[in-house]
């Protein structure tokens, strides 16, 4: 058996790129931004905008078996100014819509929105005169969680997705240019 000779000398390559490996070059603002995102992800303050059946499911999520604490999002705050993640769970009617909008507007950025359940996503089973067909017509939504009501597992998966998005700096409510500028 002939010995296979490596086509490239790895040791050499490592030497070549050593500088890049040990030294991180970035803008100061970039570093701060990275730190900011990390901290945001680990302490999300949630505003639960629950109106109906989905709210009940959301409530039981923080019950015994499934803990929202694992998600790092167990701090629910019922004041929009102090929260950065809005969870819309339940049917939003035309009458409710301006209130939801004002809650979203009161939240200070950066802010994210999860639409939980079929009703919040698209009006769900209610295609009627009084129900808003999806909250995305009122406020920007980052993550949709399907289900009527979504199972606890789905909600947890939704939260994980949300966190991933936050880490990557993706945010629906803010246009890409403004993200750049803000950095």
């Amino acid at each position: 058996m002939s010995k296979v000779k490596p086509t490239r000398d790895f040791a050499k390559i490592e030497e070549e790129f050593l500088l890049e490996k040990l030294v991180l070059t970035t803008k100061a603002s970039g570093l701060i931004d990275w730190l900011k995102r990390r901290s945001q992800v680990n302490s999300l303050w949630t505003f639960p905008f629950g109106t109906s059946c989905c709210a009940l499911e959301f409530m039981s999520l923080s019950g015994e078996t499934q803990s929202a604490g694992e998600l790092g999002a167990d701090l629910t705050r019922h004041s929009p100014e102090r929260s950065d993640l809005l969870v819309v769970g339940g049917t939003i009617t035309e009458k409710q819509a301006p209130i939801l909008k004002s809650v979203y507007e009161k939240m200070e950025g950066p802010k994210w929105v999860i639409a939980m359940g079929a009703c919040a996503a698209s009006g769900g089973p209610y295609n009627t005169y009084s129900v808003v067909q999806g909250v995305s017509s009122i406020i920007p939504v980052d993550v949709y969680i399907p289900g009527c009501p979504p199972s606890a597992e789905a909600v947890i998966a939704g939260f994980h997705l949300m966190k991933e998005r936050i880490l990557k700096g993706a945010q629906r409510g803010v246009l890409p240019e403004t993200i750049e500028k803000g950095l």
């Binding site: 035309e94 009458k95 301006p98 209130i99 295609n127 005169y129 009084s130």
Partner: peptide, 18 residues
Amino acid sequence: HPLRKDFDPKKRIPLSSP
């Protein structure tokens, strides 16, 4: 008046302010 039979069930009227 939505429950009248001649009312279109899918007609939505948005609310401008609470």
